[in-house]
Write a protein that binds this DNA or RNA. Structure first.
Length: 584
DNA sequence: TTCTTCACG
DNA sequence: ACGTACGTGAAGAAT
């Protein structure tokens, strides 16, 4: 690739709402549009720190000569380009750049993260052939055996400006020609990328954490602090009580095997030591076991060691991981951010003068199913902000619990136990929606792939699965193959809903971020947490109501961005509270 | 390294 | 008629 910039094809697609929000396609050579939009590439500079190049998005024309930037001036240069051109920032990954920008409060409106785009394109049935991309397993000199160095000499770092330009061009070439598919996939890539910006910003900001309250809670429940991997006093006492109550002194209740043997010896006929199984038994010894399990969990997952490792200066800084979960949901590594127990949320407290605004998409997955399946009855049910109440009023289910259970059974494919009866009533009334997820399940069972509304493809059936389907020599292998097929069917049935829900959530966040910025509140209102269908913001108390309004607006915009002007209803429930435990 | 259990949506 | 609840991460025990 030469210095003349990338030559990517540009087929203009119909552009949905919100292209200026950084999450929708933009194609600038149609006279009615604003001036040519720009792409700013941030690459590694082998000699210095960063190399930045500015190009016209539609033609690839160089708008400003590529320049080398040192670390000290990096944020200022980016800020200047952002103010002047508001480009879409193209980078291989956010790591290395966005922490600096977030710390310097430099706001990037739009991004395009090549590594995330590559993964999506690789799996998307709409896209053309493109290589897979895995940053973590990319060859690094130290991890390669010596002899391989000779075979694969001098692996490219893949991070120079020229390489990034080539990668972008290749991705553009892989975009589908069909205008609708193209616009959807473009929206997905942009939404995924703005998600990466948000993740980086949240990691930098952190979640306000009352360490003193957390320590106090630990002292009260566990006793004085002990070294890591030691049993705190109150937990040790409880372990002794459990051993005594079951007639097995010295029992280690953390060992499932030991505990199961002890329970059997004490006359309890249980299959496992799982809490939900033990909960059915009304006995003081069992109560002690359950009490121990709860406390042991607190000590090991959110004890003093966790605080030492993850909370600094009164904030929890998790690391969000994008692009690994098949459905497009985020994962988190470190600190178990996405599994914060409700019991610990009481120590998530906003600083004085600030509050949290906690928003979650109400009954998101049934609404997503209504949108993608175009089931008129389910859309009618979803017209009401409380979809479950509609099911109750229509006498399809007895109560909220059954409503939720039935919907989960429809979406997950459950038919066992109590959910079967509840599911049946729903299946009858929402036949179109049922057909939609059923056909996704059948496709999965046949080994075919499915995809989200915007075009995120599910992983293909692996070689072992295919082999199992072919090997039907005996009854046992036939049964195993059938079980594997049904299992994949449940996965694909869920995938079409979960992946589209994840897309809606990304677009929701992107719109919220933009509205906040537009209002001039980027510094004041910060997103501090995200779990699949729930966003937590921290803001000054006096801005909470205004922020809540923007979040609701963003949810409605997200529906229209994905599904058009006649989108189904996407209500959000919002709680304004300084203590996370008090939200919903 | 794999299994079991449990936390979240 | 029949058959299956979906996706994650972390810790500690078991292998």
């Amino acid at each position: 690739m030469t210095s003349c910039g990338p030559h990517w094809p540009c087929r203009c697609a119909p552009v949905g709402r919100g292209r200026e929000l950084g999450i929708s396609p933009r194609c600038g050579h149609n006279g009615s549009m604003s001036p040519t939009s720009a792409l700013a590439f941030i690459a590694e500079d082998p000699e210095g720190f960063a190399r930045i190049g500015l190009y016209a998005e539609d033609t690839g024309t160089v708008l400003a000569p590529a320049r080398t930037v040192d670390k000290e001036s990096f944020c200022a240069v980016v800020q200047q380009l952002e103010s002047r051109h508001a480009p879409r920032w193209v980078m291989l990954r956010t790591r290395g750049w966005c922490e600096l920008l977030a710390a310097a409060d430099v706001y990037l409106a739009k991004a395009y993260v090549l590594s995330l785009a590559q993964r999506i394109l690789h799996r998307s049935p709409a896209a053309g052939q493109i290589e897979d991309f895995d940053l973590e397993s990319a060859p690094s000199p130290s991890s390669q055996p010596e002899f391989q160095d000779a075979l694969f000499a001098a692996p490219a770092s893949g991070e120079t400006l020229e390489e990034l330009l080539a990668m972008y061009a290749a991705q553009q070439a892989a975009m589908p020609a069909d205008p609708v598919l193209r616009a959807k996939l473009r929206l997905l890539l942009n939404a995924e990328s703005v998600g990466a910006l948000i993740a980086s910003e949240m990691e930098n900001t952190g979640l306000s954490w009352d360490e003193r309250a957390h320590r106090a809670l630990l002292r009260e429940q566990l006793g004085p602090q002990v070294p890591e991997h030691h049993r705190p006093a109150k937990l040790a006492a409880l372990a002794a009580q459990v051993g005594a109550a079951l007639g097995t002194p010295g029992l280690n209740p953390d060992s499932p095997q030991e505990l199961l043997r002890a329970l059997h010896k004490a006359g309890f006929a249980v299959q496992s030591v799982r809490a939900w199984e033990l909960e059915h038994i009304n006995h003081p010894a069992i109560a002690k076991v359950l009490e121990y399990k709860k406390l042991s969990r607190l000590a090991s997952t959110h004890g003093d060691a966790w605080l030492d490792q993850w909370v600094a200066d009164g904030r929890f800084h998790p690391h969000y991981v994008l692009g690994t979960v098949a459905s497009g949901r985020w994962a988190a590594s470190g600190g178990g951010a996405l599994q914060l127990p409700h019991s610990i949320r009481q120590v998530v407290r906003a600083p004085a003068g600030s509050t949290f605004v906690v928003a979650d998409g109400r009954q998101l997955e049934p609404r997503i199913l209504a949108a993608i399946s175009q089931d008129a009855n389910l859309q009618k049910a979803g017209a009401q902000d409380d979809l479950y109440q509609w099911l109750i009023d229509a006498q399809l289910v007895r109560d909220r619990h059954d409503a939720k259970l039935g919907m989960l059974s429809v979406i997950y494919g459950g038919s066992a136990g109590g959910s079967a009866a509840v599911g049946a009533a729903l299946k009858k009334n929402f036949g179109t929606a049922m057909d939609y997820v059923d056909s996704a399940a059948r496709a999965g069972e046949r080994g075919e792939g499915v995809h989200s509304f915007l075009g995120r493809g599910c992983p293909p059936a692996d070689e072992r699965w295919m082999r199992a389907q072919r090997s039907t020599r005996d009854e046992a292998s036939q049964r195993a193959a059938d079980a594997a097929a049904r299992s994949r069917g449940r996965f694909t049935r869920n995938f079409v809903v979960q992946s589209t829900a994840a897309e809606w959530a990304l677009v929701w966040m992107g719109h919220a971020r933009h509205l906040i910025h537009q209002a001039g509140y980027s510094q004041l209102c910060r997103q501090v947490f995200f779990v699949h269908d729930e966003i937590v913001f921290e803001c000054p108390v006096e801005l909470a109501d205004e922020l809540a309004g923007m979040i609701r607006t963003a949810a409605a915009l997200a529906g229209r961005t994905l599904f058009g002007a006649h989108s189904v209803n996407f209500p959000v429930s919002i709680a304004v509270t300084a203590n996370y435990a008090d939200a919903k």
